[in-house]
Amino acid sequence: MTCWETVQAYAFRSIGFGENLLPRSDFTLCQQITLIGSGLIWNVYFGVLALGFGFFFAVAVALAKSSPRRLLRKPAEWFVFLFRGSPLFIQFFLAYEALQLLPKTGINLFGITVETAWTTRAWAGALFVLFLNTSAYAAEIFHGALKSIPKGDLEAAEAYGITGWHKFRRIQWPTMLRLGWPAYTNEAIFLFHATTLVFFSGFPAFRQMGDALYYAKYFADKTFNPFVAYPIVAVYFILLTLLLTWLFALVNRRLNRHLPSNIRSRIRLRPQLIR
C-alpha cells in the first residue's frame, strides 16, 4: 500500500469512513501519521463545540455569579465550585454512570418517545461534560473580568444615562471580553488538551473510532514502541496549540484596537485556570 492509498483508506477512519479494519501488521510511519491525524478530528470536534456553546453559557453563569440576587448567585457559585474543584475524569465517570441509567427504550414525553441510547456515546455525553467543564472555568474568568471593570467607566456610563441592557451591551460586555481574553485563551488550550481524556478514561470507543490518543495507544500497543506514536500526537498538539494561539491573538487584537498601543493587554499564556 502506498502512502497515498493509506491516506485515502484511513484519513477519515475516526468518523467511520474508509477502511473498516485498522492496520494489523507491517505498521508504517505513514499509517501512524494518517490515523493519528484522523483521530485529531475528534479532538477538534470536542474542543470547538464545547468552547462554542460553553462561551455563551459561561457569560450567563458569570453574570449570575455577579448578581446581587442570592437566588441567582448561589447556584452559579456552586456550579463553578463543583466543576473547578474536581478532576475531569471523575466528572466523565459520574456522567457516564448517570447517563446509562436512562431507560434504554427511551423516555415518553407527552406521548413522544425520546431516544436515549445516544446520550452514552462519546460524541454526545463527553461533549456535554466538556461543555459544562469549560463553562465553569470560563465563567470564573469572566466573573473576575467583570469585577475588574474600572469603576469610572461604569459611573461615566450612568452619568450619560446609559443603564440596564444598554450599559451591559456597550460598556460591560466589551470590557469584560477584553480583560478576560488572555486567560480565556489559556482555557481554550487546556480544553483542547483535556479532550485527550475522553477515550482514555471516560467513554468507550465505538467501532474503533477514537481520538488521536486512542490511535496512538493502538499503535504503541501493536508495535510495542512508545517512542514513535506518542511523539506524533505531541507534534500534532503543538501545531494545534500554535494555531489556536494565533486565532485567539487575532480576536485579542480586535478587542484592543481602540486602545493606545502601550496599554493593550498582551496575550500571555498564563494558566489562569484549574482543570
Binding site: 479494519l21 485498522l22 468507550p204 470507543a205 465505538f206 467501532r207 474503533q208 493502538y218 500497543d221
Partner: peptide, 19 residues
C-alpha cells in the same frame, strides 16, 4: 481495548465497543 478479543470482534463484523 487493544486485546486480541477486541481485534477479533472488529473482524467478525460486529460493532465493537472498547472499554
Amino acid at each position: 481495548v487493544s486485546t486480541i478479543q477486541a481485534a477479533y470482534v472488529a473482524e467478525s463484523g460486529a460493532t465493537v465497543l472498547e472499554f
